[in-house]
């Protein structure tokens, strides 16, 4: 089972602070993005979301596994 943290508008879209993927786990960030858009089509209407793996911004080729801390990072707006 892969656990994904959701923040800001991502939390509103999924209605949860964490979502889980139980089968056919994506092997990299690109796969996760495709999974998200398929399961939560509202992500397509947002400005570009980033994915963080172990608290670092990750590019599409970054591998992911169930032991990683994975988070959806919608466009930030601090300050």
């Amino acid at each position: 089972m892969m656990k994904i943290r959701c923040f800001g508008i991502a939390k509103d879209i999924t209605s949860q602070a964490f979502i889980t993927i139980d089968e056919q786990l994506p092997s990299n960030v690109e796969g996760l993005k495709l999974w998200l858009e398929k399961n939560y089509p509202q992500f397509k209407s947002l400005n570009k979301c980033m994915i963080a793996v172990n608290q670092e911004y990750a590019d599409d080729n970054t591998p992911i596994s169930t032991s990683d801390e994975i988070a959806i990072i919608p466009p930030v707006s601090g300050g």
């Binding site: 923040f7 800001g8 508008i9 509103d12 209407s45 947002l46 400005n47 963080a52 911004y57 988070a71 990072i73 919608p74 466009p75 930030v76 707006s77 601090g78 300050g79």
Partner: peptide, 28 residues
């Protein structure tokens, strides 16, 4: 620091208006 903070630090601002609320920068 403030320019980079606004660009890349994972903090999100929800703005509350008299007629609703929204996440800043989230939508085009």
């Amino acid at each position: 620091v403030i320019d980079q903070l606004k660009e890349r630090v994972p903090i999100w601002k929800k703005e509350f208006l008299t007629d609703g609320s929204y996440w800043v920068n989230a939508r085009p």
